[in-house]
Design a protein around this nucleic acid. Structure first.
Length: 949
RNA sequence: GCGGGGAUACCCGAGUGGUCAAAGGGGCUAGGUUCAGGGCCUAGUGGUUUAGUACCUUCGUCGGUUCGAAUCCGACUCCCCGCACCA
C-alpha cells in the first residue's frame, strides 16, 4: 500500500458512509442516546481550517461515543439571521470594490460574486452552496453529521418556532418593553453598532449623566443651568460654575422649564426628549460674573469664564468641585492669574477667594485630594492629558474608598454604595434630570455625528429578574462544564453581569416578534433553544411541513405535551413522532461553543432553558473550544487570507493527517498556533507515520506464527493500556491526551516491537494492529476505514465496537521484562562510551540474587535492619546486606519486585535481540554463580553488566 | 475599571506535593541506512561527573508552608481573553 493511494480516500468513504446512512440518528429505545450540538455557524464568509478545528472536536467525540454503543445525534444548522451578511450583500449591490475583491481572492468565482448581492443568496452560498461554505468544510473533513436535520434560521418553520418561544416568554413576563438609550445616526435614522462607526469612535458607549438644575434669573425669568456630571454626590462641593464665553449657547424650552445649553447639547437633547423647543440664542458673557443657585445646598455660586468647556461634551454647563476634581482646581488657579479676564467680566479677586469644599473622606489624603494629586503629579496648567489621568486617579480612589462627610445628606456612607441612591433622590426631588451623551465623540461611517437617542418602545429580555437568574444558576449547577475553569466565569455572567437585554431590532434578517410586528427578533436572541429544534427538524424536512401549520399549539404539544393533538394543523401521527423524538433526544448532553460565547449564547441557552423547560430537559454539558491562530498569533480568518480551505488539503488526501495534527496540538479548549506553514509541516510529519502504518499492515500477511515471548506479551499488554488511556482521556474530552496515547505512544511501541522482534507473531501482530485501527478511528476515520477493510474488518470501523480492555492480557512481568531490556541496552551503550570498548566480543549480564529482592520487598514494607538481620539469608551476606539495606532506604519506589526467575526468563527471550544489536556474544548468568567481580553490583531489575574484548 | 485565565528548557507545549532534569512534538548535533538530496532508523540535547553512578542548578520575581514544591500559600511583575444588544 502506498501513501499515494490516500488521494481520494476521503471522498470514497464519505460516499460510502452517506449511502449507508450510518450517521443518521433515529429514535431507538434500546440504545442510550447521546446528543451533542455545536454552536451553529453564521455563514458570513468563506471557511478555512480554523473553522474545521472547532467542529473536529465534536466529530471525534461523536465518533467515539458511537463506537461505545451510544445512539449519537450530531446535527447541524445555519444561523442566517443577522446583519453582517446583509451588509456584505448591500456592499456588493453598491459595487464596493474592497468587498468584491476580497471575495474573489478567497476563491469566489467572478460570476458568482454578483449573485451575492441578495442577502439570502449570500447566506446560502456560504452556508451550503459552494466549496467555500461551512457545509462543504464540514463534509470535507468528514464530520459525522446527520444532515437530514439541517435547517436555516430564516426558514419559515424555524421562524414559527421562534415566535412560539417569544410568545411564551412574554406570557411568563420575561419580555418587556421599556425606554432605552442607543447610539444613533441622525442621518440614516438607525442605531450604530461598532461596525458602523469610524475606527476612532469604536468602543463609544452611552453614558448617563445627571444634570443638576442650577437656578439663575435673567430678565426676570427663571432660567436653569443644567450642570452635567457623572458624580452626583459632588453637588455638595460646588464652589462655582464654568461657562465658555466663546461658545454658542441657546435658551431652550424643555417642558415647562427654560434651560441654558450649548448649541450642540440642544441639538442632542432633542433626541432624548420630545418636548424641546428653541427660544433664543444666548451669549454666556451676559451672565459670567453673576451668581446662580445650587439647587441642593441652595447656596449661590459665581459663574466663571472657562475656555476649556466644550460644547460637544455633555451640556456645556460645568459645575466646579475643586476639592475633588483636579481639572476644576487647576482651572481656578489659572484664572486667578488672568487679571485682565477677571476685569473684563467685573470679577473681583476677593470673589475668587472662596474656600474649597471638602465632602469626601479619603484615607491617606487630606481635605483636598484633587489638590494633592495635582501637586504630586506636578500639574501646573491646563494640560488636558495629564489632568485626565489625575481625574481618573482621584475618581477611582474616591469611588472605591471614599466616604461622604457631614456636610452631605449621606454622612458616613461609602461613595460606591450610595452613588446610585444620591442620583435617585435628586431625580425624585426634581432637582436634576438624566442627560445622556456618548463616552467619546461618535463619527458614523456616513459622516454624520452620532447622538444618543432614547428609544421608548424597545423590547427587552428581563435577564435582571432575580427569580429567573436563580433558576438559571440552579441549572448551571447541574451542568458539567468542561473545562472546569469556565464555570466561575459563567456563574459570574449569570449571577451578576447580565442585565436586561434588548431582544429586538427594527432592521435585520430574521423573525418578527409575534406580538409587535414593528420589531424583529435580534439575531442572538433567536439562538437560545434551537437544540430542541434539531429533534424535530428531521420530521419537518421529511414531511415537508409548511411553516403555516406550525402555530404555537403545535410546539406546546411537542415540547410541553400540552393541548390536544387533534386540534393541531399537523397530522396527529406526525405530531406524535415529533413529540417522541423530542422526549427521546432531550436533554442536550453536550453543547460546544467558543469562549467568546460564554457571556451570550451559552448564558442565553441557560436562561431560556430554565424558563421554558422542565428540569429533566435542562442541558447537561457545556464545553468550550479554542480557536486557531497563525504563526504570528493572529486569529485565522477569511479576511486575512491566512487559512487553508479544506478542499485544498483534501486534494492531497491529507485530511486525516491534518485532523490528527490538530488534535495533538493542544487541548480542544486551548487556542493553537497552527498557521499554514505549520499545517504543511504537520501533514508531512504525520503522513510519514501513516506510511509506516501501511507498511505494518502489509507485514501482517508475512508474519509467522510463534509462541508468545516476552515482547509479544509486552505489546499486547501495552495495547490494553493504550485502549484504557485513550478511553479515559476521551471521557474527559482530552483529545490531545487521547491522541498521544492512541497514536504517538502506540506508534512508538509498535515500532519498537517490530524493530526488536526477529520474527513477528502473526496472531499477536494482527490483533495489535486491529486494536490500533479502532482506537484511532475517532481521529482519522477515513484512513482507518481503509485499513479496517484491508485487515478484514466487518462493516465500517465507524460502526465497530470500541475495543474492550482484556484484563488478562495486561502482563506486568512482561512489561518489566521489556523495560529491563531497554535499560540493558542503554547501560551497555553507556559503558561502551565510557570505557571505549567499542566492539566488545562478549557481554555478560549478571542477574542479582534473590536475597536482594527479598530485602527490597522487606524495605518497601518498612522493616527494620535489626529485624531483617535475624534471618539467615541476610545475615550470611554480612556487610553487603547492611550496605544494601542503607541504599534501599533512600528509595521511594513501591513497585512490585519481579523474581530472579522471571528476570532470567525475560532476558533469555531477548538474548537474540541483544546479540543482533550489539554484534557480540551475550551470556546471562546468576550473581551467585558468576565469577565476575562486578557481579555484586547487580540489583533487582538492574543486572550487572560486564563487557569483554 | 469589572470578571476570567496564564507565565515551564532553543521554540511549541504536557505536568497540580515525592516515581521530575521535567511527557510529546519541532529544531539542532552525532551516527547509521553505504553512492546526491530527502525520507527513514538510532542516540544525544542544563552543568559537572562515573564502567552503566552521584551531585549541583533550573519551571516569571521575591518570600513562606513542608522531611520534601514546577506543583500549596502570600506579595509582586508581565501577558492573554470577555465586557453585550454584535455574530
Amino acid at each position: 500500500m502506498d501513501i499515494e493511494k490516500l488521494k481520494g480516500i476521503e471522498k470514497k468513504w464519505q460516499k460510502k458512509w452517506k449511502e449507508a446512512g450510518i450517521f443518521e440518528a433515529d429514535v431507538d429505545k434500546n440504545k442510550e442516546k447521546f446528543f451533542l450540538a455545536h454552536a451553529y455557524p453564521y455563514p458570513s464568509g468563506p471557511t478555512h481550517h480554523g473553522h474545521a478545528r472547532a467542529y473536529l472536536f465534536d466529530d471525534a467525540i461523536a465518533r467515539y461515543k458511537r463506537m461505545k454503543g451510544f445512539n449519537v445525534l450530531y446535527p447541524m444548522g445555519w444561523h442566517c439571521t443577522g446583519n453582517p451578511a446583509m451588509i456584505k450583500a448591500e456592499k456588493i449591490r453598491n459595487g464596493d470594490e474592497d468587498t468584491i475583491e476580497k471575495l474573489k481572492e478567497a476563491g469566489v468565482p467572478e460570476e458568482e460574486v454578483k449573485k451575492l448581492k441578495d442577502p439570502h443568496k449570500y447566506v446560502r452560498f456560504f452556508a451550503t452552496e459552494s466549496d467555500l461554505s461551512y457545509k462543504s468544510c464540514l463534509e470535507t473533513v468528514g464530520c459525522s453529521i446527520d444532515w437530514r436535520r439541517e435547517f436555516m434560521t430564516i426558514d419559515e418553520t424555524y421562524k414559527k418556532f421562534i415566535q412560539w418561544q417569544y410568545s411564551r416568554l412574554k406570557e411568563l413576563g420575561y419580555v418587556q418593553q421599556k425606554e432605552y438609550p442607543v447610539i444613533w445616526c441622525p442621518e440614516q435614522e438607525m442605531p450604530l453598532g461598532d461596525n458602523d462607526v469610524e475606527d476612532e469612535s469604536q468602543g463609544a458607549e452611552s453614558e448617563e449623566y445627571i444634570a443638576y438644575k442650577f437656578r439663575i434669573e435673567i430678565d426676570n425669568e427663571k432660567i436653569l443651568l443644567p450642570a452635567a456630571t457623572l458624580r452626583p454626590e459632588t453637588i455638595y462641593g460646588v464652589t462655582n460654575m464654568f461657562l465658555n464665553p466663546n461658545l454658542d449657547y441657546v435658551i431652550a424650552k424643555l417642558g415647562n422649564e427654560k434651560w441654558l445649553l450649548s448649541h450642540d447639547a440642544y441639538e442632542k437633547v432633542k433626541y432624548q426628549r420630545e418636548d424641546v423647543s428653541f427660544v433664543k440664542e444666548f451669549s454666556s458673557e451676559d451672565i459670567i460674573g453673576s451668581y446662580c443657585e445650587n439647587p441642593v445646598t441652595e447656596k449661590d455660586v459665581i459663574i466663571l469664564p472657562a475656555d476649556f468647556v466644550k460644547g460637544s461634551s455633555a451640556t456645556g454647563v460645568v459645575m466646579s468641585v475643586p476639592a475633588h476634581a483636579p481639572y476644576d482646581h487647576i482651572a481656578i488657579e489659572e484664572l486667578r492669574k488672568q487679571k485682565d479676564v477677571l476685569k473684563k467680566y467685573g470679577i473681583g479677586m476677593e470673589e475668587l477667594d472662596f474656600d474649597y469644599i471638602s465632602l469626601i473622606d479619603l484615607e491617606g489624603y487630606g481635605k483636598y485630594p484633587a489638590v494633592e494629586v495635582a501637586e504630586e503629579m506636578d500639574i501646573k496648567e491646563l494640560d488636558e492629558e495629564r489632568l485626565e489621568e489625575a481625574t481618573k486617579e482621584v475618581y477611582r480612589k474616591e469611588f472605591h474608598q471614599g466616604t461622604l462627610k457631614e456636610n452631605t445628606a449621606y454622612p458616613g456612607k461609602r461613595v460606591d454604595k450610595i452613588k446610585k441612591k444620591v442620583k435617585e433622590d435628586m431625580l425624585a426631588r426634581g432637582l436634576a434630570e438624566i442627560y445622556y451623551d456618548t463616552s467619546k465623540p461618535v463619527l458614523c461611517k456616513c459622516g454624520a455625528s452620532g447622538v444618543i437617542k432614547l428609544v421608548d418602545d424597545q423590547w427587552f429580555l428581563k435577564y435582571s429578574d432575580r427569580e429567573w437568574k436563580n433558576k438559571s444558576l440552579d441549572l448551571l449547577e447541574r451542568v458539567k462544564v468542561i473545562p472546569k475553569k469556565y464555570r466561575k466565569e459563567l456563574n459570574y455572567y449569570l449571577d451578576e453581569w447580565m442585565g436586561d437585554k434588548p431582544c429586538a431590532r427594527k432592521k435585520t434578517l430574521g423573525t418578527e416578534l409575534p406580538f409587535d410586528k414593528n420589531w424583529m427578533v435580534e439575531p442572538l436572541s433567536d439562538s437560545t433553544i434551537y437544540m430542541a429544534y434539531y429533534t424535530i427538524s428531521k420530521t419537518i424536512n421529511q414531511e415537508n411541513i409548511d411553516g403555516e401549520k406550525l402555530d404555537s399549539s403545535v410546539f406546546d404539544y411537542i415540547f410541553w405535551g400540552k393541548g390536544n393533538p387533534e386540534n393541531c394543523k399537523v397530522k396527529t401521527g406526525v405530531l406524535e413522532d415529533m413529540r417522541k423524538e423530542f422526549l427521546y433526544w432531550y436533554p442536550l448532553d453536550m453543547r460546544i461553543a467558543g469562549t467568546e460565547h460564554l457571556s451570550n449564547h451559552l448564558s442565553f441557552m441557560i436562561f431560556h432553558h430554565a424558563a421554558l423547560f422542565n428540569e429533566v430537559e435542562w442541558p447537561k454539558g457545556v464545553t468550550i473550544h479554542g480557536m486557531v491562530l497563525d504563526e504570528n498569533g493572529n486569529k485565522v480568518s477569511a479576511s486575512k487570507g491566512n487559512g487553508y480551505n479544506m478542499k485544498e488539503i483534501a486534494k492531497g488526501g491529507m485530511v486525516d493527517a491534518m485532523r490528527l495534527g490538530m488534535y495533538a496540538k493542544s487541548s480542544p479548549w486551548d487556542d493553537i498556533k497552527f498557521g499554514k506553514k505549520e499545517v504543511d509541516k504537520t501533514i508531512e510529519n504525520v503522513s510519514s507515520r501513516f506510511q509506516k502504518l501501511f507498511k505494518y499492515v502489509d507485514l501482517i500477511d508475512e508474519a509467522s506464527k510463534e509462541t508468545r515471548d516476552v515482547l509479544d506479551r509486552w505489546i499486547l499488554s501495552k495495547m490494553q493500556r493504550h485502549i484504557k488511556n485513550t478511553e479515559d482521556a476521551l471521557d474527559k474530552l482530552e483529545l490531545m491526551e487521547a491522541v498521544n496515547h492512541a497514536f504517538y505512544s502506540a506508534f512508538n511501541d509498535i515500532k519498537d516491537y517490530v524493530n526488536k522482534k526477529e520474527n513477528l507473531n502473526h496472531d499477536v501482530f494482527k490483533d495489535v494492529i486491529r486494536t490500533w485501527i479502532r482506537i484511532l478511528a475517532p481521529f482519522t476515520p477515513h484512513l482507518c476505514e481503509e485499513l479496517w477493510e484491508k485487515t478484514g474488518g466487518d462493516g465500517f470501523v465507524s460502526e465497530a465496537e470500541w475495543p474492550k480492555v482484556e484484563e488478562e492480557l495486561i502482563d506486568e512481568t512482561a512489561e518489566k521484562g521489556k523495560e529491563l531490556g531497554d535499560t540493558i541496552e542503554e547501560d551497555v551503550r553507556e559503558i561502551k562510551d565510557i570505557t571505549g570498548l567499542d566492539k566488545p566480543k562478549e557481554i555478560k549480564i549478571i542477574v542479582s540474587d534473590d536475597w536482594k529482592r527479598d530485602m527490597k520487598t522487606a524495605v518497601q514494607k518498612n522493616k527494620e535492619l535489626s529485624e531483617l538481620m535475624k534471618k539467615n539469608k541476610f545475615r550470611k551476606q554480612g556487610n553487603s546486606a547492611v550496605r544494601y539495606f542503607q541504599e534501599l532506604k533512600k528509595e521511594h519506589e513501591k513497585e512490585r519486585v519481579i523474581s530472579g526467575k522471571e528476570e532470567l526468563k525475560a532476558l533469555g527471550e531477548m538474548k537474540g535481540h541483544f546479540e543482533k544489536l550489539f554484534q557480540a556474544d551475550v551470556i546471562i548468568e546468576k550473581e551467585s554463580e558468576s565469577k565476575e567481580d562486578k557481579a555484586v553490583k547487580s540489583r533487582p531489575e538492574k543486572p550487572a553488566i560486564v563487557l569483554k574484548n
